[in-house]
């Protein structure tokens, strides 16, 4: 049976997923959840596939009402979460009864929160993704009164005693600001910057308020390009660190234009991009040099932890009959011990 939610206060929120990976080929940025770890974790905790549509809430307060019984999970930046007026925990599945309001307030330390609903939403897609693309005018910007249909409803699951949280799944929560450490690897054009490229690792940078999903602008000591001449337009990776002006460093994020003509000094790692996704204006950033091999190993360890989490969630949900028939009768002795 499908469920329904009603947006009561949209703040700055969109329905998104992990991004339009086929987009760059056609000149569209990948876009999608800026903090990919938190987005994946929210979906896993809600019993969804990693890439299913979920709500990204940026900076401002957000409120929605469950119009049927649903199951949700909220991850990302620390915030004040209440469900039906009760304080609730992030990074855990939460059972919500029809008529209850889910309220996200006072996002702090980080900038973005992720709210996944079990069964996800029916939303339009473009090139296989629902991620908004502001340039081509695609995507679902949530407004007060927007109704979203979830693909499944979930009968209420509640601790009978003291309303304690039902689930204690133990998941690593990312560290957040105001001092951020961001890993980068050498960019393909690092030699264009000569020795001044080292400034990237010895200076501290301040996140400018003119930062968004396209890129972050950082003030501080700037490496200087020693080469000259026009660079042919080239595909630029998400995470590219460029010095387009004398005022600021530019770090491209998932909304970046696919091609550009600036030399790429360094590239932020996949995990580093999650850190930057949570950077607030005024936060301080330090860059640390790593290698592609080390970055990939760390990224894979992090994803392996999410796989472990998925197994725990599947086991618990299976026992409770969430997303499937109750399976008490199928349990082996080992699983019960």
């Amino acid at each position: 049976m499908s469920g329904k939610i009603l947006i009561q206060q949209s703040g700055n929120s969109v329905v998104t997923d992990l991004g339009r990976t086929r987009g760059p080929r056609f000149g569209l940025p990948v876009n999608g959840a800026l903090d990919q770890y938190s987005a994946r974790a929210a979906n896993i905790l809600a019993g969804n596939l990693d890439n299913e549509p979920l709500i990204e809430v940026t900076a401002l307060d957000f409120r929605m009402k469950a119009e049927s019984d649903i199951l949700i999970a909220v991850t990302g930046a620390p915030l004040t979460l209440t469900v039906g007026g009760r304080p609730s925990s992030q990074w855990e599945p939460i059972s919500v009864r029809a008529g209850e309001t889910i309220s996200i307030r006072a996002i702090n330390r980080g900038l973005r929160a992720y709210l996944a609903v079990h069964g996800s939403f029916e939303v339009p897609t473009l090139l296989g993704s629902c991620a908004p693309d502001t340039v081509v005018g695609f995507g679902l910007q949530l407004r007060e009164g927007t109704e979203l249909v979830t693909r499944r409803s979930v009968v209420p699951v509640r601790q009978p005693y003291f309303d304690l949280p039902l689930f204690r799944l133990g998941i690593e929560r990312p560290d957040m600001g105001p001092q951020l450490l961001v890993d980068v690897t050498d960019g393909p054009d690092v030699e264009d910057f000569g020795e001044s490229g080292e400034l990237l690792f010895t200076s501290e940078y301040a996140v400018s308020g003119r930062s968004n999903h396209i890129g972050l602008r950082l003030g501080g000591q700037l490496p200087e390009r020693t080469s000259s001449g026009e660079v042919l337009s080239r595909g630029v990776p998400v995470g590219a660190v460029e010095v387009p002006s004398r005022e600021e460093l530019l770090v491209l994020h998932r909304g970046r234009g696919v091609t550009a003509g600036y030399p790429v000094l360094a590239v932020v790692t996949s995990m580093g991009l999650d850190v930057l996704a949570q950077a607030r204006p005024g936060d301080k950033v330090r860059f640390r040099k790593t290698t592609v091999g080390e970055a990939t190993a760390a990224h894979r360890r992090s994803r392996a932890q999410l796989e472990t989490l998925r197994e725990s969630v599947n086991t618990v949900f299976g026992l409770l009959g969430i997303g499937c028939r109750p399976q008490w009768q199928d349990l082996t002795v080992a699983a019960c011990s």
Binding site: T21, P24, L232, R234, G235, T259, S270, V292, A295, H299
Partner: peptide
Amino acid sequence: LHGAVPTYDSVLVEFDPVLVSA
């Protein structure tokens, strides 16, 4: 492999580093 972005003299090849290594 996510895809490739060819321009004039270069192509950016994007991939999922969990599924395949550089």
